[in-house]
Design a binder for these strands. Structure first.
Lengths: 238, 238
DNA sequence: CGGGGTTCTTAATAATTCTTTATAATTGCG
DNA sequence: CGCAATTATAAAGAATTATTAAGAACCCCG
């Protein structure tokens, strides 16, 4: 479900037009036709971003902003026909985050809204309480960057840790070297042998008998889903 | 000490004019005359916000943005003579946060910059410096400048104390050496090795097994958010 | 004004991690 | 069995970080 936007304007046609476009962009839109209505809605519902028209009869957008700033900490974007710099400065000074003058290009409004939402994500990412991963006797704690096997702590380097986390998150799937390298190293150029080496390091440190990290010949690697029984034994004898 | 702004434009007169105005507004301004210069500076220093002119000879502002977005998470504001909505949308799509067309009113630029900085504060506020910080069995009292571990007092030097307080206030985040140095030492020139040394001192005094202060290879340091049980053991053996 | 001690910084050295390169081992197939 | 493709291991080099040690700056106290 998309982010929630509150759009406040006393021009019904704009309200309709914009809410259509924003919906198409995957956002959930709630509209209000006046400052009074907006204040009421804001008390009751949560929004990720609020768009306020400044020139409205009754309570103006500026006043709405001044009243809710302090209670609500989502980004606020002003919309106004006045393009005088003084008004813009005053609007931003009230605690708003952006100011767009009418008439505006719809796509620019969408782009600006998404820029704000993106920033919100980047700064305060909703951390889905990074769950602890446990498969067999291997336990990985993303929060503390720690790994243990049968209760005993195992010390891994950063890359080894990231690789293990990636494998465990995608346990059961066979992952190609290309995909692993792209997702864990996050670069396009580089040597795929690097993956093999880190796989080996992991095996040496916490999987000497290859119980967890299997090699799928010609395809890639696979972390077993449940471990324990199906002891397969390593492929290589040395 | 004001927030640090990087201002990039190949027009020297604008560079001078704007940096004056921003300085008057209490901000610390660093300037770059080309995209190449900007990229180099960004690798070495930390900024709270970056202003990029789009039309520059050599590496354009758009390209600078594309390259640093991902590494740098501060707000980026574009400046351009082109007021075509398509350019604005493209700019914002690249991960920028705002777009202002030339010619612009200086005060509006200042207002927009401050709006972004204000929001940064609101979203990711440094925890109030006065409150007592406790993470795991480490307890820090800013009021009395004292630190204790599991109830036993630990004696730290001034800089060590400030560094620990900074780390604990920003627990959970990975903090680059540049950023730590700027925020704790509050000077621009100096050796980043100083940070490493004080980190080591802290570890010796109250974190001999690296349970709290983690090294994020290639990035910086990170104070764990919750700590305690899962004792890990250090990476280095000696 | 000093002395004595602590703290801070700089510089040099050691240790670790990551990547690349090279070599050995294994698998699949004829 | 032998060849080619694939994977594993080993070792070296570069980059990053940790540690050590020594000199400079600072502060407190007489």
């Amino acid at each position: 479900m998309g982010k929630r936007i509150l759009f406040v304007d006393d021009d019904a046609s704009i309200l309709l037009l914009v809410s259509d476009v924003l919906s198409d962009a995957g956002l959930t839109v709630r509209t209000a036709g006046s400052g009074e209505e907006a204040l009421e809605i804001i008390q009751q519902e949560f929004f990720d971003l609020i768009v306020l028209d400044i020139m409205m009869k009754g309570i103006s957008g500026l006043e709405v902003c001044a009243r809710i700033r302090g209670q609500v900490e989502c980004p606020i974007l002003f919309l106004s026909a006045k393009d005088d710099a003084r008004d813009i400065i005053r609007g931003l000074g009230l605690g708003a985050d952006d100011y767009l003058t009418k008439p505006f290009v719809l796509e620019e409004l969408v782009a600006r809204i998404q820029a704000h939402l993106r920033r919100q994500e980047r700064i305060a990412p909703q951390r889905p309480p990074q769950s602890i991963l446990q498969i067999g006797e291997i336990c990985l704690n993303p929060e503390e960057m720690t790994v243990s096997k049968a209760g005993n702590p195992v010390s891994l380097s950063t890359k080894e840790f990231e690789l293990l986390a990636y494998l465990m998150r995608n346990a059961g799937q066979t992952l190609s070297r290309e995909r692993i390298f792209r997702d864990v190293w996050k670069t396009d150029f580089g040597d795929l042998g690097t993956v093999a080496i880190n796989i080996k390091n992991l095996r040496v440190k916490l999987d000497p008998d290859w119980s967890y990290i299997k090699t799928v010949w010609g395809s890639g690697y696979r972390f077993v889903t449940r471990s324990g029984y199906a002891e397969e034994g390593k492929h290589y004898e040395h």
